[in-house]
Nucleic acid binder design. Structure first.
Length: 311
DNA sequence: AACTTTTACAACCGCATCATT
DNA sequence: AAATGATGCGGTTGTAAAAGT
């Protein structure tokens, strides 16, 4: 197909927009609507190409754009959607009101992606990158923490199949490290949830390809993702399984429901992770706090496991 | 204080897709 | 059906501000 260049390369301004240009574009669109983007610049008195105008409007001037830092819930949603949709930024943006695809893409590349990498998670597949992990230090630190509450066993691995409990486990694990007293408080508050899960959540009949006995398949363990961090679940018994998250499948999960993303309790913040906490924090402290979740990358060591084959 | 490096984000570019003729 | 034009999308770049030395 033939194609004319989107705009003359000569005589048209490039680079950052000035307030005057913004005003011209905004005023024009508010009166006339965007109409034809190619002809808009001339009509609006702008020396820009239509593409540049469209982008400026869509990514910056549009009145319904939400500006400011991404909330914890938004970040969670981005990670979850990205695990399913990949780099379909416009599709992700469509589910985050007020956020543009460009903004989400930038935020992913400058914040989320880096953090996942630091924590040994492949930002493309959302699977753990064992080559990046210092397994020996993780293993030794885990072995030295036996006196701490064993949250995975407390909840029961079945519970991890419940997204609500997944979030709870996530919170508990971070508290386990940082604040055992609050942890106990959380445990009491959520006792009923755990009980309900144990009673009502019989292990669903997962297909063979989605379940792994931990004692034999450490190398195949996938992270249970929550809040963008990897989280291994494993116990000492052959009966305990971890669920392979849908985001490591080769394509979109046919059973995945976007509605569930919106309504799932996983998006309901616990007090610890409330959005207001993050929004009102300075940038560095927010990152620090989120960084603390890196402690989640822990798992228990099955009896009789030969570490040497993983070193 | 000056310089360098890093970070964050706006903007650009080229290709893909859709709509129209 | 093919050609053309408009728009959308995702990767990449440019640059100002912040952080570090």
């Amino acid at each position: 197909m033939g194609r004319t260049p989107c705009c003359d390369k000569t005589g048209l301004k490039k680079g950052p927009w000035t307030p005057e240009e913004d005003l011209k574009l905004t005023n024009y669109i508010q009166i006339h609507g965007p109409g034809n983007w190619r002809t808009l610049p001339k009509k609006a008195g702008l020396e820009r190409c239509g593409k540049s105008c469209r982008l400026r409007w869509a990514n910056y001037l549009r009145p319904d754009i939400k500006r400011g830092r991404f909330s914890f819930e938004e970040e969670e949603t981005i990670i979850q959607l990205h695990s399913v949709l990949g780099n379909k930024w416009s599709a992700i943006a469509a589910r985050l009101p007020g956020r543009t695809d460009n903004e989400i893409k930038n935020y992913w590349n400058t914040h989320i992606r880096k953090r996942l990498l630091r924590n040994g998670i492949d930002p493309v597949t959302h699977a753990p990158r064992l080559d990046f992990l210092d397994l020996s230090s993780i293993l030794s630190s885990t072995l030295c923490n036996q006196s701490l509450v064993n949250v995975s066993n407390l909840l029961g691995a079945q519970a991890l199949l419940n997204p609500q409990l997944l979030r709870l486990a996530n919170t508990l694990l971070s508290l386990k490290q940082d604040n055992p007293e609050i942890l106990l408080q959380h445990l009491q508050q959520n006792q009923q949830l755990c009980n309900d899960s144990q009673e009502n959540l019989a292990p669903p009949p997962l297909p063979p390809s989605t379940t792994f006995p931990c004692t034999t398949m450490l190398s195949q363990m996938e992270p249970v993702l929550s809040s963008g961090e990897g989280f291994f679940s494993c116990s000492n018994t052959q009966e305990t399984f971890v669920s392979q998250p849908n985001h490591v499948q080769s394509g979109p999960n046919p059973n995945f429901s976007f509605d569930s993303l919106r309504s799932t309790p996983m998006s309901s913040p616990t007090p610890l992770n409330s959005s207001s906490t993050f929004i009102n924090s300075s940038s560095s402290s927010v990152d620090d706090e989120r960084e603390s979740f890196s402690s989640l990358l822990k798992f228990e060591i099955p009896d009789g496991l030969d570490f040497s084959e993983f070193m």
